[in-house]
Simulated scan of single mutants.
Amino acid sequence: MFRGFEGKFLTQYGIGNDLLEIDPNPKNWSVDWEASCYSSKSHKGIIFGLEEDVTMNEVNKGKEFPVGWICIAHPSKYEEN
């Protein structure tokens, strides 16, 4: 779901929300530096990218992380074998 997507997941989160609104615990967030995206232990299989003008960083409470895109990962990426 990329630019123009106006839907929400969990009926409240979507493009423009901050990562810490989606999951307020910074320790739950993982950063994939190669793919330029974030994922949360609380929402397995959902991958979040930031808005284009935001610099990638470790998630912390002192910085804003507005969501620019959302993707759903293939189950093989997050299911335990």
Rank of each mutant, 00 (worst) to 15 (best):
M1W: 02
F2K: 05
F2V: 02
E6V: 10
G7H: 09
G7A: 09
K8I: 02
K8A: 04
F9G: 01
F9S: 01
F9Q: 01
L10T: 01
T11N: 11
Q12L: 06
Y13T: 02
G14S: 05
G14W: 06
G14E: 00
G14M: 04
I15F: 00
G16K: 03
D18G: 04
D18H: 10
L20S: 11
E21I: 00
E21D: 14
P24Q: 00
P24S: 13
P24D: 06
P24W: 03
K27F: 04
W29V: 13
S30T: 06
W33S: 08
W33D: 02
E34M: 02
E34D: 12
A35V: 08
S36T: 06
C37Y: 02
C37F: 01
C37N: 13
S40Y: 03
S40P: 02
K41G: 14
S42K: 13
G45I: 07
I47N: 02
L50P: 13
E52D: 15
E52M: 09
E52S: 14
D53I: 06
V54E: 13
T55M: 07
T55R: 07
T55L: 13
M56K: 10
N57S: 15
V59P: 07
V59E: 08
K61R: 12
G62D: 15
K63P: 05
E64C: 07
F65R: 10
P66W: 15
P66R: 13
V67E: 08
C71P: 02
I72V: 15
A73Q: 15
H74M: 07
H74N: 14
H74S: 14
H74D: 15
P75A: 05
P75K: 04
S76E: 15
S76F: 14
Y78S: 10
Y78R: 11
E79P: 00
E79G: 05
E80V: 13
